[in-house]
Simulated scan of single mutants.
Amino acid sequence: MSDINIKVTDREGQVHELLAPTDMAMNLMEVCKSYELPVEGTCGGMAMCASCQCYIISDHQLPEMGIDEDMMLAEAFYVKDNSRLGCQIPITKELDGLEVELAPES
């Protein structure tokens, strides 16, 4: 099993250090949900809602934002330059040390 470390700051400012498997085809939203962090993922990871929006804090190279994610973020609340949808970030070895902050609920 090949796990990476991810730091997630929740909406109350508490930092959670998570182990995320790279061999299970999970995305960031699914990892957060598996740790019972307050990430809805209402659309099931289809980039059709923004309930898994987060802010990327660390300087990691992420996959390019797709058109669906870009359009969803254009309609979301509390969007910043570093906003991404957790469901669109696959867990890979390259993301070891990733730091994110959960966006406020709308």
Rank of each mutant, 00 (worst) to 15 (best):
E17I: 14
A20V: 07
T92M: 11
P104N: 05
M48F: 11
I89M: 05
G13Q: 06
C52D: 14
Y78T: 07
C43W: 08
E12C: 07
V39D: 09
L28Y: 08
L37I: 11
Y55R: 03
M46H: 14
D23C: 09
L73W: 07
D68C: 06
N27V: 04
N82S: 14
I6P: 05
Q88R: 10
K7N: 12
I6M: 10
V100R: 00
Q14H: 12
M71L: 14
S34W: 12
S83L: 05
C52V: 07
I91D: 07
M65I: 13
T42W: 00
C87H: 02
E64Q: 14
Y55P: 02
Y55M: 04
V15D: 14
G41M: 08
P63E: 13
Y78I: 00
I67N: 12
S58L: 10
M46N: 11
V79Y: 08
P21S: 13
S106M: 00
E99Y: 00
V79K: 03
T92S: 07
C52F: 07
H16S: 10
P38F: 04
M46S: 13
G44W: 02
K80F: 06
E36D: 15
Q61W: 00
N82Y: 05
Q14K: 15
V15A: 15
L73D: 09
I89R: 01
F77V: 05
C32M: 14
I6K: 02
A25L: 14
L62E: 07
L95P: 07
E101K: 13
G45F: 11
I4E: 04
L85S: 06
D68Q: 11
M65V: 13
I89T: 01
T92Q: 08
S34L: 10
D68W: 02
Q53H: 11
V31I: 15
A25F: 14
R11I: 12
T92I: 11
C32D: 08
D96H: 10
M46Q: 14
D81V: 01
M65L: 10
G44I: 01
A47I: 01
D23R: 00
T92W: 00
L85T: 06
P21R: 07
I91V: 12
N27M: 05
V79M: 09
A25N: 15
L95I: 06
V39W: 03
L18D: 04
G86F: 02
M1H: 13
N5T: 15
K80Y: 11
K7I: 15
G86C: 03
M48E: 15
L18V: 03
Q61M: 08
P38R: 03
E105K: 10
D23K: 03
E64S: 13
G13E: 09
L102K: 04
Q14M: 11
K33G: 00
D23A: 09
G41W: 06
E75D: 15
M48L: 15
S83R: 01
I6L: 12
L37H: 08
M29P: 01
E101V: 04
D23E: 13
L102P: 04
P90Q: 07
G44N: 05
M24Q: 15
E99D: 09
G66Y: 03
E94Q: 14
M48G: 15
I56T: 06
Q14F: 06
A47L: 02
D70I: 07
G86N: 04
G41T: 08
I6D: 06
E75T: 14
E75H: 11
I6E: 04
L98I: 13
N27Y: 05
H16D: 11
M24R: 14
K33A: 09
G97H: 03
